[in-house]
Each structure stands twice: as C-alpha cells, then as structure tokens.
C-alpha cells in the first residue's frame, strides 16, 4: 500500500485521531479509579450512605 506524496498527511490524521481517543480513554479510566479511591477513603473514614449500602458497591 503506497500513500503517494501525501502520506504524511494521512498518517498524521490517523495518528492524531488515535492519540486523542487514547487520551479520552485514559482520562476516563484514571477518573474512574480516582473516584473509586475517594469513595473507599471516605468509607474508611466512617461516612456511610443513607441507604446503608457501601458506596463502592456497583
């Protein structure tokens, strides 16, 4: 497969799309862990939900 004279533009656009989507995925994943960690810390410090269920339970 040859991309001709415009190869750099095609490759750059695909790479950029991949990079931004990876960033989104990483951001969402890190955020998820962060929120779970904060919930666990809060529970460990003795705060409980009104329903009595554990906050990290899903």
């Amino acid at each position: 497969m040859s991309l001709g004279p415009y190869a750099s533009f095609v490759v750059t656009s695909y790479a950029l799309v991949a990079a931004i989507i990876m960033l989104l995925i990483i951001w969402i994943g890190v955020d998820y862990r962060h929120q779970r960690q904060r919930l666990r810390d809060l529970e460990a410090s003795g705060v409980t939900r009104r329903s009595g269920r554990t906050a990290t339970e899903i």
Partner: peptide, 9 residues
C-alpha cells in the same frame, strides 16, 4: 461516582 463522592463529603 463523582456525585456520590460529593454527597458523602
């Protein structure tokens, strides 16, 4: 989860 954290805080 963020809202849960907020209400627990």
């Amino acid at each position: 989860l963020r809202r849960r954290v907020r209400s627990l805080q």
